[in-house]
Amino acid sequence: MRLAELSKRSGVPIATIKYYLREGLLAPGRQINARTAEYDEDHLRRLRVVRALIQIGRLPVATAREVLGHIDDDSLGRTIRMGAALWALPQVPEPDEDDEFVQSARGEVEQLLERLGWSNAQALSTISPAYRSLVVGLAAFRRLGYTWDIELTLPYARLMHEVAVLDLNFVETHSSEAEKVEIAVLGTVLLEPVLHTLRRVAQEEEAARRYGFE
């Protein structure tokens, strides 16, 4: 298909597609002559992924480019490739290691992973943004004076492991390695808000069941 058809089918303006091409978010089309290139279904699919990352996920162009670079990097094994793509997404800042609440939360997270038997998560703890986010979140909760100990966290962690199993089962229904990594990223960018919202809807349902509407 030509650029005009790619624009029509994707709903993305021609000027925006040209911008994505210049920024390396979209591979060049097959050159027919000096002024014309031809694009295929892979371009259309990638264009939709780019739009999802930038418009819905609100990723900066540079971040989207880095994420897509990891998705396309077939020199990496699946776990590292997936991790690199996910870790390129916006993350929380590094915690202040001198903060007593951070120190306490970090010790709690280490105990949590040990109780769960999550040895791989323990091995990745020094580099994983997810581990860092967990520490920062628990530290912030404690800083506000709320008690949230390991016994309260354990059942949530076990439920999240069940969610992770469902996530990766879905990832494995896709054929190519690039698709597997791509859907893992899109699941994080697009579905995490859905899961958060489902939790809120469930809380509303449970609150109404317990306390009524008074």
Results as ranks from 00 to 15, higher is better:
167 D>V: 07
163 V>D: 04
205 E>H: 08
115 R>T: 07
183 I>P: 12
207 A>L: 12
105 A>Y: 12
136 V>N: 03
155 P>R: 10
93 P>L: 02
175 S>D: 14
8 K>R: 12
177 E>S: 12
82 M>T: 14
149 D>T: 03
51 R>I: 06
110 E>C: 12
83 G>D: 00
139 A>L: 03
129 P>H: 00
46 R>T: 13
186 L>V: 06
33 N>L: 05
152 L>N: 09
6 L>C: 06
213 F>R: 14
180 K>Q: 11
72 D>Q: 15
203 Q>F: 15
5 E>F: 00
123 A>Q: 14
72 D>K: 08
205 E>D: 15
168 L>P: 14
4 A>T: 04
76 L>F: 09
22 R>A: 05
58 R>H: 09
163 V>M: 05
158 R>D: 09
55 Q>H: 03
104 S>W: 12
32 I>S: 01
20 Y>D: 00
155 P>H: 02
50 V>Y: 00
193 P>I: 05
29 G>S: 04
183 I>K: 04
44 L>H: 05
80 I>W: 11
166 L>P: 11
54 I>T: 11
43 H>E: 11
86 L>W: 06
74 D>R: 14
125 S>E: 01
132 R>W: 00
80 I>A: 13
10 S>V: 10
66 E>I: 07
168 L>E: 14
122 Q>I: 15
39 Y>S: 01
78 R>M: 13
14 I>M: 11
48 R>C: 10
4 A>V: 01
134 L>Y: 08
83 G>Q: 00
120 N>D: 13
200 R>D: 03
96 D>S: 13
105 A>N: 09
203 Q>V: 12
131 Y>P: 13
69 G>C: 00
55 Q>T: 11
21 L>C: 06
184 A>N: 06
168 L>T: 15
84 A>I: 06
148 W>E: 02
199 R>D: 13
124 L>G: 03
132 R>T: 14
158 R>N: 01
160 M>S: 15
39 Y>I: 02
38 E>V: 10
36 T>Y: 07
182 E>V: 06
137 G>C: 07
23 E>V: 04
184 A>R: 09
68 L>H: 03
192 E>P: 08
73 D>E: 07
178 A>R: 15
195 L>P: 08
79 T>D: 10
142 R>N: 06
167 D>T: 09
19 Y>G: 13
179 E>V: 05
25 L>R: 07
140 A>S: 02
97 E>V: 08
205 E>Q: 08
91 Q>N: 15
139 A>R: 02
188 T>F: 04
34 A>C: 08
106 R>F: 06
74 D>Q: 15
112 L>W: 14
146 Y>E: 05
118 W>N: 11
105 A>T: 04
73 D>H: 06
73 D>V: 09
195 L>D: 12
192 E>H: 02
61 V>E: 01
72 D>A: 08
31 Q>Y: 02
145 G>R: 05
129 P>I: 01
67 V>Q: 05
